[in-house]
C-alpha cells in the first residue's frame, strides 16, 4: 500500500525512467512471454529463462523476439541444483540484472500475454525490486482466462500443454521458454479471433 512511499526518495535507474516514458502512448503491440522458474513461489524461487515474441496486427513477428537464460549460479549453488543446462544451452546468457534490463527494454509499453501471466509478472516484479525499480506497468492478458471465457468454464484448470492439444498445436520435443512463448502466441491468435478481440 505504501510502496510508492518506500520508493519516493530512491533514484530509479536510467532504463526504468525510459521504460516509464514509453507509457505516454497506448501500444498496439502484444508481447507474449513465458518463463522457466525454479519453483512457484516468487519470493523464494528465481527465474531461469525468459522467452518472448511480439504480435502486431494479428501476426507473430518472428524477428521481434527475445530470449535469455539467467545466470543464477548463486541460487543454484545454494540450493544444490545443477547448472548444467546453463552450460549446455546455446542461447544468450546474462546475469539477472542485465537480463531484466534487456527484457524491460524489449517489452516497452506492450500488452503482456502469457499462460498464468500473474505469476510471471510477480516473478519479474520481485527481480525488479532488487534493482531499485517499481512494478511493471504493462497491461496483462492471461491465456487460460481467455480460454475459460471462450468456453464459459470457471472451475477447471488448463495447462499450456492441454491448451496446445485442444487447438492442435504441435509441440516440439525440446521445451524452452522461447518454444513455449511461440506456442502461447499461436494460442493467443486463435483465442483472440474466436473471442472477437481486434
Amino acid at each position: 500500500m505504501l510502496e510508492w512511499l518506500k520508493n519516493i526518495n530512491k533514484e530509479h535507474p536510467e532504463f526504468w525512467k525510459n521504460y516509464h516514458s514509453k507509457f505516454e502512448k497506448r501500444s498496439s503491440r502484444y508481447v507474449i512471454l513465458s518463463t522457466q522458474n525454479t519453483g512457484l513461489n516468487p519470493d523464494k524461487d528465481v527465474i531461469l529463462s525468459i522467452g518472448a515474441i511480439s504480435v502486431i496486427n494479428n501476426s507473430i513477428i518472428v524477428g521481434d523476439s527475445f530470449e535469455v537464460i539467467l545466470l543464477q549460479y548463486v541460487y543454484l549453488h545454494e540450493n544444490g541444483l545443477s547448472n548444467e543446462f546453463i552450460i549446455e544451452s546455446k542461447q544468450p546468457k546474462l546475469g539477472e540484472r542485465e537480463a531484466m534490463q534487456a527484457f524491460i527494454d524489449f517489452i516497452g509499453n506492450a500488452v503482456l500475454v502469457g499462460h498464468r501471466i500473474n505469476l510471471i509478472v510477480d516473478f519479474i516484479n520481485v527481480a525488479l525490486e532488487k534493482m531499485d525499480c517499481g512494478k511493471l506497468k504493462n497491461e496483462a492478458l492471461d491465456i487460460e482466462i481467455m480460454y475459460r471465457k471462450l468456453m464459459d468454464i470457471t472451475d477447471k484448470e488448463f495447462s499450456i500443454d492441454a491448451l496446445c492439444d485442444i487447438f492442435k498445436i504441435r509441440k516440439s520435443e525440446e521445451s524452452s521458454s522461447s518454444e513455449d512463448a511461440y506456442n502461447t502466441a499461436l494460442l493467443f491468435l486463435k483465442l483472440k479471433s474466436r473471442l472477437g478481440l481486434n
Binding site: 494479428n58 501476426s59 513477428i61 518472428v62 502466441a185 499461436l186 491468435l189 479471433s193
Partner: peptide
C-alpha cells in the same frame, strides 16, 4: 527472421 506468422480461422 523476417517471417510473420498468422492464424486463419
Amino acid at each position: 527472421l523476417n517471417i510473420k506468422v498468422i492464424n486463419l480461422e
